[in-house]
């Protein structure tokens, strides 16, 4: 499944869904949960590889969302709102536990992490495995920006707003990350026609 949205926009369905949810509609709430859960986990794992922590944060996020539904305003985009809230939660957790530094350069490779195990599975295609490993080598903020811009389909501007940095910094994260990916992966190997000559 590809995510093809390029910018986050107010869409009628989002508004209707959000309004129903604010009135206490559990079906609407579940729809919001089911529609965004995958995006949230994937994003969370780009910030921290501690899967339990991500799970707790997402759970807290939705519980708080439900409890404070009547006080909530209408976000421009539900997804942007959720991603930003999750980011805030994870970072606060990380700061409290102090086991992982937010600004550190390289993510530690956790041998028994779920993602790592899945990396080893044969179901993953060669390209995807290569890309996953290459992304793991990127500095955290670059990895996060790259994920937001491409996988989550955010614009450079939204990436900046979400990460709380200025536009130029966000662009720099993304551009530098792409450049590093090219070097790490020797991207020419991605060209199917040249595959056999390497």
């Amino acid at each position: 499944m590809e995510n093809e949205s390029t910018t986050l926009q107010k869409r009628p369905n989002d508004l209707i869904l959000w309004e129903s949810f604010r009135r206490g509609d559990r079906v609407a709430f579940e729809n919001i949960y089911q529609a965004h859960f995958g995006s949230l986990v994937r994003y969370g794992l780009k910030i921290s590889q501690d899967q339990d922590l991500i799970q707790d944060c997402i759970q807290d996020l939705f519980i708080e969302l439900w409890d404070s539904r009547q006080q909530l305003t209408i976000p421009n985009s539900i997804r942007f709102y959720l991603l930003k809230s999750l980011r805030y939660k994870i970072i606060r957790q990380l700061q409290n536990s102090n086991t992982e530094s937010l600004e550190n350069g390289y993510a530690a490779v956790i041998e028994d992490s779920v993602e790592h195990n899945i990396l080893l599975q044969e179901t993953r295609s060669g390209y995807l495995r290569q890309l996953g490993l290459a992304m793991d080598q990127l500095p955290k903020r670059q990895r996060e920006a790259l994920h937001l811009r491409y996988f989550q389909g955010l614009s450079n501007e939204d990436v900046a707003r979400l990460m709380g940095v200025n536009y130029q910094s966000a662009c720099k994260f993304i551009y530098t990350a792409l450049k590093s990916l090219r070097n790490i992966m020797r991207l020419s190997s991605l060209i199917p026609t040249l595959w056999f000559f390497i």
């Binding site: 590809e2 993602e115 599975q121 390209y127 995807l128 996988f151 389909g153 990916l181 991605l190 060209i191």
Partner: peptide
């Protein structure tokens, strides 16, 4: 190819 891969969802995850 890189754009496609960056946007691709991994069904294993």
């Amino acid at each position: 190819e890189l754009v496609k891969q960056l946007k691709a969802d991994d069904p294993a995850l």
